[in-house]
């Protein structure tokens, strides 16, 4: 019984902790209901994702679904990131509170972690026969790899969507990068795990690249935020 309780808590802790960390790292904290609704939409991404995945398998033939490259880049990377992109671009940018580029990161994280939250529950409680020790080890491993990786992809996507939304020119390059960069990084991350001929420890290489990119993008937005705050204080004075 004790293990069951801690299993459930361990399943939820990484996603909720990361969400709160990034949410409260924003100088101008987003409304909780906006973040929560984005998080919940992130959970529901699973529905259209499964529909599109199975449709693709029906069209291309079942053997494709056993191909690690297809599963990593199409199902895991492209479909997941595409629907997160849709949540951010068609839903989150309509919030009144979406008023600075940093908000893209917060909502990007919320959508990604919503999906990661559901995925954690799937891996622990739904896939295969339930074995307590296996479930605990799965949750433990995912807390330090898959969940932060999802969050990093959300940051990268949110950054580019924020930049696009508040752009001063007509270029759509940031919109393209919002989808392309997370798909590539996510795809490679999953591929090294699924492809038997590749050492799965390479996933740490892609996590490190994602982490470095996240730090760079986050700090550049924080600097922008600080500059804007200083400029508005000067104008008031």
């Amino acid at each position: 019984m004790t293990d069951k309780i801690f299993l459930l808590l361990s399943t939820m802790l990484p996603t909720i902790a990361l969400l709160l960390f990034f949410m409260y790292s924003d100088k101008f904290v987003e409304p909780k209901k906006n973040v929560l609704s984005t998080f919940i939409l992130g959970i529901f991404i699973i529905a259209p994702l499964q529909v599109f995945h199975y449709t693709a398998v029906m069209i291309l033939g079942e053997p494709i679904d056993y191909n690690p490259f297809f599963r990593a880049f199409f199902k895991a990377a492209f479909l997941e990131e595409l629907f997160k992109f849709c949540v951010l671009y068609f839903f989150c940018t309509k919030f009144t509170a979406f008023n600075e580029p940093m908000d893209g990161i917060v909502y990007g994280i919320a959508a990604s972690l919503g999906f990661a939250f559901w995925e954690n529950l799937e891996y622990v409680y739904i896939y295969g026969e339930f074995d307590m020790e296996d479930a605990l080890i799965t949750v433990w491993g995912r807390a330090f790899t898959a969940v932060p990786s999802h969050a990093f992809d959300g940051v990268i996507m949110g950054f580019f969507i924020g930049k696009h939304y508040f752009r001063t020119n007509k270029s759509h390059i940031n919109l393209l990068l919002a989808l392309l960069v997370p798909v590539i990084l996510h795809g490679f991350y999953d591929w090294v795990l699924m492809e038997e001929s590749i050492n799965s420890n390479f996933m740490f290489l892609f996590m490190t690249i994602e982490f470095g990119l996240v730090i760079y993008l986050y700090r550049s937005l924080k600097t922008d935020q600080l500059q804007k705050k200083t400029e508005s204080e000067k104008k008031l004075n």
């Binding site: 004790t2 293990d3 069951k4 309780i5 801690f6 299993l7 808590l9 361990s10 802790l13 990484p14 902790a17 960390f21 307590m132 020790e133 605990l136 949750v139 433990w140 807390a143």
Partner: peptide
């Protein structure tokens, strides 16, 4: 002796460290 307990408290330790 619960494995789940130690996994959870270690994870919580990481969360607290980052906070």
């Amino acid at each position: 002796e619960s494995l789940g307990f130690y996994i959870f408290v270690d994870m919580l330790g990481v969360v607290l460290s980052f906070f």
